[in-house]
Design a protein around this nucleic acid. Structure first.
Length: 389
DNA sequence: TCAACTGGCACATTTGAAGAGC
DNA sequence: AGCTCTTCAAATGTGCCAGTTG
């Protein structure tokens, strides 16, 4: 059966819906979108890095529709963007906020698609926040192997994708270059752009169909290990439910923290009494002031891949990817290739189960495609399943 | 000396297991 | 027995901040 052939001995663990699936995407030598070698990348990083969406591949499924993607929470992104979005990166991995949420339309309801997220450098500079603005202070660090976050529902039918908001909230960013969790590895103080790819899958999970790339200028951000711009901190605290405790009326707001410290200093040996007078209850039912309505931007394939102010790849690289399939194959080796490298992996789920899952259209288990387990062949990656977190 | 980074902290939210009730 | 609902503790996601590193 197909699934068995594709996954000769896949290691699958129990997982819950929404678990992340990441994939290292070290550019194979035969199709160097970016130089594989970090040193090489550092030396020859093209001045214009964002590639245009590869063209549609003719004669493959139903590709006549114009696929559109809307950024759902675009107003929130715009708020951050106008100030200068910063994303915290940590060794343990940090989620993105605002979250990347999109709605897709124009898909063929019966065809299957994989939807994934990647994050690429916008330029080849390193930044520093001084005089209330971000300024270039030098060249970018050596480029790291690209990793993509495959949406855990992938592959799924066009109907599935079009019936819901597609959220990449589980994607995590890290600055740990030795990261083994499969998170997206980024350099601190560099500027990045998030992109969404929609890939038609010809068979159950075989890539190779038409592929479309979307990016939104609002989703550019600078990575930091600690927030530099107070305005961004305020925006995050006010918009992110998890940061509620830092709001003006929260238990962890400045006033409360200072009060706690004062009490500690005054009564170092006593248990901290509840300061009822200065305590403002934090209403957990409070509606977030998130301007996340459905106001959104629709970008058709022809207009979406690039923002006018976002540079694109040099002509040479663009030409290399004039065929979407070539682009995808260069970025993501097909599952059949991956399967060749997993034969010695342990199993915790039967091949039949894998097979039936795939045939039933059940979302694929989350996989880490890790260059840590890179086998040596440019197109062969180890494939491991992520267990519950 | 200083910018950048790290780890621990307190708080809020999310998640899932366990138990009650039908 | 099986389903739904509620409760609660653990896990996870936040920004802050003091200490560390280069």
């Amino acid at each position: 059966m197909l699934g068995v052939e594709m996954y000769p001995s896949l290691a699958l663990a129990a997982q819950r819906l929404g678990d992340c699936c990441y994939r290292d995407r070290e550019p194979p030598a035969h199709m160097p979108l970016y130089p594989t070698s970090c040193d090489l990348a550092a030396r020859s990083l093209p001045p214009r890095l964002l590639p245009p969406p590869p063209g549609k591949r003719d004669g493959f499924g139903k590709s006549d529709d114009v696929i559109k993607i809307e950024l759902e929470n675009i107003s929130l992104w715009k708020q951050f963007s106008t100030v200068g979005t910063e994303m915290i990166i940590t060794k343990k991995g940090r989620r993105m906020f605002p979250q990347l949420k999109v709605k897709v339309s124009g898909l063929n309801p019966s065809l299957r698609y994989i939807i994934l997220l990647d994050i690429i450098p916008v330029d080849s500079f390193r930044y520093r926040f001084q005089d209330d603005s971000w300024q270039v202070v030098g060249g970018a660090e050596a480029r790291l192997p690209d990793r993509v976050f495959i949406h855990p529902d992938s592959p799924a039918t066009g109907e599935h994708w079009q019936n819901r908001t597609i959220s990449f909230h589980r994607a995590k960013l890290t600055n740990n270059t030795l990261d083994g969790q499969g998170y997206v590895i980024l350099h601190s103080l560099h500027k990045y752009q998030a992109r969404v790819h929609v890939v038609e899958t010809r068979d159950i999970m075989m890539w190779g169909g038409a592929q479309h790339t979307f990016s939104f200028p609002e989703t550019q951000f600078i990575t930091v290990t600690a927030y530099q711009n107070n305005k961004i901190t305020e925006l995050k605290i006010n918009s992110n439910p998890f940061a509620k405790g830092f709001r003006e009326n929260g238990m962890n707001c400045k006033r409360q923290r200072e009060a706690r410290q004062k009490r500690k200093l005054n009564q170092p040996n006593q248990d901290e009494p509840l300061d009822i007078e200065s305590f403002d209850p934090c209403d957990s039912t409070e509606v977030l002031p998130q301007p996340m309505g459905l106001e959104s931007t629709t970008l058709s394939l022809s207009e979406s891949g690039f923002c006018s102010d976002v540079p694109t790849l040099p002509e040479r690289t663009v030409q290399q990817h004039s065929s979407s399939q070539a682009y995808m194959s260069s970025q993501m080796p097909e599952i059949s290739e991956i399967s060749n490298s997993v034969e010695n992996q342990p199993q915790s789920i039967s091949n039949n189960e894998v097979n039936s899952r795939l045939l039933d259209g059940i979302p694929a288990p989350p996989f880490i495609y890790s260059s840590d387990t890179f086998t040596g062949s440019p197109n062969m990656y180890m494939l491991t399943a992520r267990g519950p977190t």
